[in-house]
Amino acid sequence: MKHWTEGFDDGDADESLVRPYTITGGRTTSERDDLTLITLVTTISEASSEIGHGLRRMQPEHRAILGLCRRPLAVAEVASALNLPVSVTKILIGDLIETGQMRARPPLAFAQAGGFPSMTILEAVRDGLRKL
């Protein structure tokens, strides 16, 4: 597997589909398969002071993600804010997790075999909805 900074080429960003994958250095699939649409990701504040540490080629989008996620945001929210496809966003977030600049909180696996939201969660959701 090629490292994402290999073969990096800025000169070929004219095609709308190519540009997002240029950001990822040509990678189109994430090595992490644990990021979901509603995994909440948060910038680790201590790490943000030494931005770029551990990432050989920090893209502006990496920085934008770190800036956005000072409060926890879902992967889908990050993708939407950056106007990037979900798969590309997952790759970038994966980079930042790998280099210790972000942490992720995955959702509980309700819909998977046997999973079911607890009464505590259901009551909280009900009470929250009633306040709408």
Binding site: L37, I38, T39, L40, T42, P72, A74, R103, R105, P106, P107, L108, F110, P117, I121, V125
Partner: peptide, 11 residues
């Protein structure tokens, strides 16, 4: 053990 400040997301 993810209780590090981020809320839990449900959908």
């Amino acid at each position: 053990d993810h209780g590090d400040g981020a809320p839990l997301a449900v959908k």
